[in-house]
């Protein structure tokens, strides 16, 4: 009996301790309860800096994809990165872009986000391409005041690409029959449960050329005066150039290393020589293990439709 009473006493103490611990934790970690979100703000104007931020991977709208270790550039990620860069009071921002391309809508959003950012905050934007900025990767680079490229990097591939998939033969082999009931003749275009027909090709072509036209408009608006006319046909036919070739045809502004890009950014922004260079990282870091070559990952992760209903893919993408 004594033992049971003792145990009760100990358990009671433990319960009281747990309640106290929980109460303190709730008050500390949910500060809105006590209006303690921000006790004070110590703000001191900083000297201007040159911020360096890195964008690497497929340009996509949403990060919620498979488990494959691919890096993504999403509008949310870019926004987060730009917000972090602002804390460094940048006079110039260098974006190190390394991307084979991606979704048109995400490219469009990131391009305009960068444009707005540099205008709103009066920041000189320089893009440095160390390895690859093709198609959608190049699209977002067009927001820069100047593009510096590594001579061995790949640049260009101005164009869009579309693919349609059909599972009819596969389903036939599996013994599965699918009948499609449509409310209108355009409903279910590019459905993977029917054979690819002329209208599907035409529809895809229309979408591809539509997004391609948007890309060309942005290219002309940003670099129309810098592109060499005799190479324009090749450029608009999605030719890929090495860094030094890209300079000749006017796709980029200069050749160099990241150090030269920093120097160029400093000159363009009119910053003093001792301006500090700060590396900017997003608040939430992502774990990526770049083990496989791009093409395999892209094929596995993105281009093979995950659900049969998602059978059409339009991309600003290199080599697919």
């Amino acid at each position: 009996m004594v033992k049971v009473l003792d145990l009760k006493r100990h358990v009671c103490y433990m319960i009281v301790a747990a309640i106290i611990a929980l109460l303190i934790t709730v008050l500390l970690h949910y500060p809105t309860l006590l209006h303690l979100e921000e006790l004070g703000r110590i703000v001191v104007p900083r000297p201007k800096s040159i911020a360096v931020a890195r964008l690497s991977g497929l340009v996509v709208y949403s990060e919620e994809r498979g488990l494959l270790p691919i890096s993504y550039i999403t509008p949310n990620y870019v926004e987060d990165l730009l917000e972090e860069a602002l804390k460094e009071n940048p006079g110039a921002l260098i974006l190190v872009i390394n991307s084979p391309g991606g979704e048109p809508s995400a490219c469009y959003e990131i391009y305009h986000m960068l444009k707005r950012y540099k205008e709103e905050h009066n920041i000189t934007l320089v893009v440095y391409i160390p390895s690859i900025a093709c198609s959608g990767g190049y699209y977002i680079s067009l927001a820069a005041d100047e593009i510096v490229v590594n001579p061995d990097a790949m640049v260009g591939s101005v164009g869009a690409i579309g693919m349609i998939f059909s599972y009819v033969d596969l389903f036939k082999k599996l013994g599965v029959e699918v009948k499609i009931v449509r409310s209108g003749k355009f409903k279910g275009l590019t459905s993977p449960f029917k054979r690819i027909e002329k209208e599907d090709i035409e529809f895809t072509r229309r979408i591809v050329y539509g997004t391609y036209r948007h890309f060309v408009d942005i290219l002309m608006e940003s670099r129309g005066d810098k592109l060499r006319e005799e190479n324009l046909t090749d450029i608009l036919n999605a030719m890929i150039y090495l860094g030094d070739e890209a300079l000749k045809v006017g796709l980029v502004d200069s050749i160099g290393t990241l150090e030269e890009a920093k120097e160029r950014a400093r000159e363009l922004a009119g910053l003093p020589e001792n301006t500090p260079v700060v590396e900017v990282r997003p608040r939430i870091r992502r774990i990526t293990i770049p083990l496989l070559p791009w093409s395999i990952l892209v094929a596995l992760e993105y281009l093979i439709p995950k659900a049969p209903s998602n059978s059409i893919k339009i991309m600003y993408m290199i080599g697919t």
């Binding site: 921000e38 703000r41 110590i42």
Partner: peptide, 9 residues
């Protein structure tokens, strides 16, 4: 909870 926007420089 103090928001610090300050660098040593």
């Amino acid at each position: 909870r103090y928001v610090l926007e300050i660098t040593p420089e």
